[in-house]
Design a protein around this nucleic acid. Sequence first.
DNA 1: TCTCAGATGAAATCGAGTTGCAATGATGGG
DNA 2: CCCATCATTGCAACTCGATTTCATCTGAGA
Lengths: 143, 143
Amino acid sequence: MSALSVQQLRARLRACGLRATLPRIAVLGQLTAAEGPRSHAELTDALTARGFDRATIYRNLMDLTDAGLVSRTDLGDHRWRFELKRASHAQDPCHPHFICEGCGSIACLPEASVELHAVRGAPRALRHKSVQVQVRGLCNGCA
Amino acid sequence: MSALSVQQLRARLRACGLRATLPRIAVLGQLTAAEGPRSHAELTDALTARGFDRATIYRNLMDLTDAGLVSRTDLGDHRWRFELKRASHAQDPCHPHFICEGCGSIACLPEASVELHAVRGAPRALRHKSVQVQVRGLCNGCA
DNA sequence: TCTCAGATGAAATCGAGTTGCAATGATGGG
DNA sequence: CCCATCATTGCAACTCGATTTCATCTGAGA
Ligand SMILES: [Mn+2]
Ligand SMILES: [Mn+2]
Ligand SMILES: [Zn+2]
Ligand SMILES: [Zn+2]
C-alpha cells in the first residue's frame, strides 16, 4: 500500500516501545509497502542488498509481531508469512478471517458469516465465543 | 474410533494396491484408532517402540495419502497432520477442527458446531461450503 | 557526551521433512 | 512350496526454514 516516510515509520516503532534502528525501519517499511503477506525469505532478498543480516530481519519480524504491528500466519505452505496490520482493516473484536489458499490473501469476514454452536462434544470455549475462527479456501479471484 | 483387526487393515491396504507390510499396517492401525489428525512425530513416538523407523513411518504416511486413504493438512502450526478419511465420519472431508492454543492438541468438531453464512462481502467459496474451518482457542483442559 | 540495555552480524544449531542406498521381505508365478 | 522380482525397509545423510548463541555495536535517555 502507501509507502510511509522514514519519520512516520520511526514514530510508529517508538510508539510501540521499539527502538528505531535502521534494519527495523527497513523491515517495517517493506511490510508497509507490500500488498499482502511476505515471507522471511522474500524480505531477506529485498533487504540483504542494503547489508542487513537475515537473522536481524527475522528477529525484527518477530519483534514487530510481538509488538502487535504485524501478524504472522502460515497459509498452509509451511512457511511463515508476515503482514502489516492495517487500521483500515478494522481489527475490532475477534472476527473470522478468510485465507485464500491460492494467492495467500487474507480477508476479514463479516461477523455474521460464521455462527458457532456449542453442541455436545465441542470445547466449552465455543460457548464463550472466546475463539478465533479461520476459514481457508479459494477467494473469488482464485476460484 | 473403532480399532480394526489386522485382517481388515490388510484388506484395506491390498484394495488400494499397497503391500500389507508390518509398518504400514501399524501406521494405518494408529490412524484408524486415533480420533483426530496425528503428526508424523506423534506416530513415530507411538511406533518406534515396535522397532519401526521414522523414515518408514513417514513414507507410509505419504503412501496412504497418495492412495487416498488419508488426508494431509497443515492446521497452521507448521506441522503436517494426517487423518484417516472415514466413510462414517461426516462425509464432508472438510469438517471443522479445534486447535488448542495452550497444549496444541487438535480435535475434530461436530459438523453442526460451525454454521457458515454466505452473507454479502464473503467469498463465494463459503456458499459452496468448499472451505476448511479452523477454530482456535483453549480446550477444556487448558482453559 | 556518557552509558548500557537493547540490537546487530556472523555463525552455529535445531528440527520437521525428505532422500539415497544397500539389505530385506511381500507377493505372484512356476 | 520355492524362487525371482521389485516394493519396501532401516539407517544415515541431507535440505532448508526457523531459531539461537555470543561477541560487538548502537540508539536513546540521563
Ligand atoms: Mn504450515
Ligand atoms: Mn478431523
Ligand atoms: Zn486468492
Ligand atoms: Zn489444550
